[in-house]
C-alpha cells in the first residue's frame, strides 16, 4: 500500500472526565484521565489495532476520535478535517466519512425500529437518498453486502441472533459510504463460531471498499490476525506501537510482554512449556495515575528513573515505537 497522506492523524489527544460531588454545587473533586496524550496515524486502507485491558482508555479514545466525546485537548484529523473543532455542516460531513461499529449487538440497535429504519438512518440524516423507494432498495443492497437477506428489512432487532445483529450494525456503518470505521470490540460479545464470520466479513468489506479500520479489542490473538499495526494502551497512554509481527515477536515494553504471555494458546504442550509473566496487582486508578512511568508499580524491570520521569516516546526500530526507560 503506497503511503501518501494518512487518513487519520491523532496528535496528543486527551480526554478527561470530571469527577464531581455535591448536590447543588457540583464541585470537581478530580479528573479521570481516561485518555492522556495519545498520538498515532492510520494510513488509508490500513487496520490499526488498539489493545489493552479494561479501563485502559481504548474505548474512550475511539469515541473521542469520532467526536462523540468532546476532546479535552489535542487534534484529530480525518481526511484532512479536524473533527475536534468542527461544528454543524462540517462535522456532519466528517461524520459521514467516519463511522463506528459497536461492541454490544443488543444495545446498539434501537429496539423499536425496524432493520430498514436502522440501516437507512445515515441515508436520511445525510440526505443521501431522498426517494423512499430508492432508499429501501439501497437498504436491501446493504443487507446483501453483510450477508443478510433483503427480505428481513421489516423485522425488529429482537428477532435476530447476536451475529446477525452485528451484521446489521455493520450495514448501518456502511450506509453512508465511509472511508474510516472505528470497530469498538465488535466481536467480543459474540460466540467463538460467530466471531470468525464477522471478522471475515470486515476483511472482505475492507478489500471491496478500501476501508480503513481502527480495531479496538482486548483479544490479542484476533488483533494479530486482523490488524496491520498494533498499539498497546495502558492507563490512558500508548506504551508501544509497531507492525503486527514486529510487535508480537520483538515486543519491547514489559507490559506488552506480560500481556502477550497471559494470552492462552490453544495448544497444551506449548501453553504449558512457555514462560508466563504474571503481573501482580491491578491496574491503578486513572484518577491518580502513578508518577513517572505509569506501569512502574507493576513492572518487573522498574528502577529509580521509572518512578520519577515519564519515559519518552521514541522509535526504537524503524516503525517500532515504545515508551520505556529500560529497553
Amino acid at each position: 500500500m503506497s503511503v501518501t497522506q494518512p487518513l487519520v492523524e491523532v496528535q496528543n489527544l486527551k480526554k478527561y472526565f470530571p469527577v464531581t460531588s455535591g448536590l447543588f454545587l457540583q464541585r470537581k473533586v478530580g479528573m479521570v484521565r481516561a485518555v492522556d496524550g495519545v498520538s498515532f496515524i492510520i494510513n488509508r486502507g490500513e487496520t490499526l489495532g488498539l489493545v489493552g485491558e479494561s479501563g485502559c482508555g481504548k474505548t474512550t479514545a475511539g469515541r473521542t476520535l469520532l467526536g462523540l466525546y468532546p476532546a479535552t485537548a489535542g487534534v484529530v484529523r480525518i481526511d484532512g478535517h479536524d473533527i475536534c473543532s468542527a461544528k454543524g455542516r462540517e462535522l456532519l460531513s466528517i461524520r459521514r466519512k467516519a463511522q463506528m461499529i459497536f461492541q454490544d449487538p443488543y444495545a446498539s440497535l434501537n429496539p423499536r425500529w425496524t432493520v430498514n429504519a436502522i440501516v437507512s438512518e445515515p441515508l436520511r440524516v445525510h440526505k443521501l437518498i431522498k426517494n423512499n423507494k430508492e432508499r429501501s432498495e439501497r437498504v436491501k443492497e446493504l443487507m446483501g453486502l453483510v450477508g443478510l437477506s433483503g427480505r428481513l428489512v421489516n423485522r425488529f432487532p429482537h428477532e435476530f441472533s447476536g451475529g446477525q445483529r452485528q451484521r446489521i450494525g455493520v450495514a448501518r456503518a456502511l450506509a453512508s459510504e465511509p472511508l474510516f470505521i472505528v470497530c469498538d470490540e465488535p466481536i467480543s460479545a459474540l460466540d467463538v463460531s460467530i466471531q470468525a464470520q464477522v471478522v471475515n466479513l470486515l476483511e472482505d468489506l475492507q478489500d471491496q471498499f478500501g476501508l480503513t479500520y481502527l480495531f479496538i479489542a482486548h483479544d490479542l490473538s484476533m488483533v494479530r490476525h486482523i490488524c496491520d499495526r498494533v498499539a498497546v494502551m495502558y492507563l490512558g497512554v500508548i506504551v508501544e506501537l509497531a507492525e503486527r509481527n514486529e510487535l508480537y515477536e520483538h515486543y519491547l515494553h514489559p507490559y506488552t510482554r506480560a500481556l502477550l504471555s497471559a494470552v492462552p494458546i490453544p495448544d497444551p504442550k506449548k501453553d504449558r512449556a512457555r514462560q508466563r509473566i504474571i503481573l501482580t496487582g491491578d491496574v491503578p486508578s486513572p484518577i491518580h495515575p502513578p508518577e513517572g512511568c505509569r506501569f512502574h508499580p507493576r513492572c518487573p524491570l522498574a528502577g529509580e528513573e521509572c518512578r520519577i520521569n515519564d519515559p519518552q516516546w521514541r522509535e526504537a526500530a524503524p516503525g517500532h515505537w515504545v515508551a520505556c526507560h529500560k529497553v
Partner: peptide
C-alpha cells in the same frame, strides 16, 4: 445505550 451513541456517530 449504545444505539444512542450510534445515532450520534451517524450525525
Amino acid at each position: 445505550n449504545e444505539f444512542i451513541l450510534a445515532a450520534r456517530a451517524t450525525g
